[in-house]
Design a protein around this nucleic acid. Structure first.
Lengths: 263, 263
DNA sequence: CGTTTAATTGAGGAAAGTCAAGTGAAGTGG
DNA sequence: CCACTTCACTTGACTTTCCTCAATTAAACG
């Protein structure tokens, strides 16, 4: 706890930070800090630090989009309300992420804090002014957006899966890769979100999520310490479910004659 | 037919084109051309025109990412191969779109032409050079990426839906909005892709897609003219299924106590 | 400590997936 | 131009999975 506060405070002093996998530079799957010291200092000058309590709504879908935020501490979720009123979660946000996606002047999703959140707040006009005369910074933003686009496409792959257990496994795998080496022991995953949130993210019901967790623990693949700490007990079986067992080799370049089967 | 060729040829002469909804400027839902004449001319100088036959693979997932493309004529699909070998379609590409998304130097998906495709090809180093000294162009790229991110998140909403008929309706609705007023009569949608492609995009089986189409035509909501031309017969019912009946009003700001239900 | 919120678990039914056969359309080569 | 092959799509019977409804337990919070 104390350690975490220190880390966040330290992060605030260093200024805004954007993490991403570079589209062109290989980095063995490790996220990189895109901003240079100079850029961070410059951005810090126009961006006040804002804090939100756990469960607080940072902004609502449809609100006038006046600012972009950069998380430096905590976690949040992006919710989109479907036409029938059902909520769907389109992303989870962690330190190094940006939020504030807009369309025609209005925010595209509702943002809710899962834990206490600390963020830098960039007023859109000020940000645009800075971007307009710093091509490098602009380029970094492009890299980050490409990263988010890939993430979102991966999310779609998870949603397209049809077995609930596989969906949950893929979700946990994603979370593990995303989780900055945040003081978690190896094979440990911390879940800042509820089971309901997970359900809404992977596109199944709360019941199904619960059953999937049970099935995973009973199968000896996971172990739970409390409800928010997951340990991966059987890496091999886990990787198989999460679909990480593929070779990185050029893959079969044969156009698969698409039958009716999905598994 | 003749008309289409002319239109593509004309588009080539005008140079690269990027269509998007602006994040901040309201435009009543109509896509806008982001590039100015000057930018289009400048880009055309570094980008040769390339053509691909119907069904041709433009590049494979995992290939070294050496170029970015801008479609000016035809349609294509982005396929991602899941670990189990199943193919999932993460997007369809139309004139005004970009493709060439990379991660650590390699393409993230396989691109296949659905119809004959005409595109501009930008070698990555040349493109980076141009971007580095044109902040406006860079900004336009940011706008386009934000547009694609929203699209991808919308795709996720479609995938999270659980009734096959609703998925297909949402897909058709998306296609209708995307379809540039391309000589199609009102309420008419042209499908450049197969039923299999649709199935892989919305995350159901080919059978289920076929049944959904049947259910929609039998219900008097759609009418088919051949397999690739759809007419919307009952706008109201269609909008209801596709989830377009929502008011744009600030929506209920009440945190819905999430039960188990998804419909 | 009691109250609210989060999560688990069970029984039954609806929906889509699977397997398999068959129809229609499109393209190919004689 | 027609027979033939192939590919795209449709349809049916059966199985699996998850969703729905509902009751209960466990944890979190004041």
């Amino acid at each position: 706890m104390h350690g975490m506060l220190d880390r966040t405070d330290f992060a605030i002093k260093r200024g805004p930070a954007i993490g991403a996998l570079d589209p062109w530079v290989p980095s063995a799957g490790r996220m990189r800090q895109l901003l240079s010291e100079r850029e961070r200092v410059r951005l810090a000058r126009i961006a006040p630090v804002v804090r939100f309590r756990k469960r607080e709504t940072i902004y609502w879908e449809g609100d006038p989009a006046e600012a972009v935020f950069n998380i430096v501490g905590g976690a949040a979720k992006v919710c989109r309300t479907a036409s029938d009123g059902a909520e769907h979660i389109s992303a989870f946000l962690f330190p190094g992420d940006l939020f504030g996606l807009a369309q025609e002047g209005r925010y595209v999703g509702t943002i809710r804090a899962l834990t206490p959140v600390t963020a830098f707040r960039f007023a859109v006009p000020a940000l645009r002014r800075i971007l307009a005369d710093d091509a490098t910074l602009e380029f970094h933003l492009i890299v980050k957006l490409m990263h988010e686009l890939r993430q979102s496409q991966h999310h779609a792959v998870v949603l397209a899966t049809n077995r609930a257990v596989a969906k949950v496994a893929m979700f946990l795998h994603m979370l593990e890769r995303l989780q900055p080496a945040s003081g978690e022991a190896a094979n440990q995953i911390f879940l800042p979100m509820t089971r309901s949130d997970i359900a809404e993210y992977v596109g199944i019901t709360l019941s199904a999520t619960s059953r999937a967790f049970r099935s995973l623990t009973e199968g000896g693949i996971l172990a739970l310490r409390g409800r928010r700490h997951v340990t991966i007990a059987d890496r091999v079986a886990f990787a198989k479910l999460a679909g990480v067992d593929r070779e990185r080799a050029p893959a079969a370049r044969t156009a698969v004659t698409s039958r009716d089967t999905r598994r």
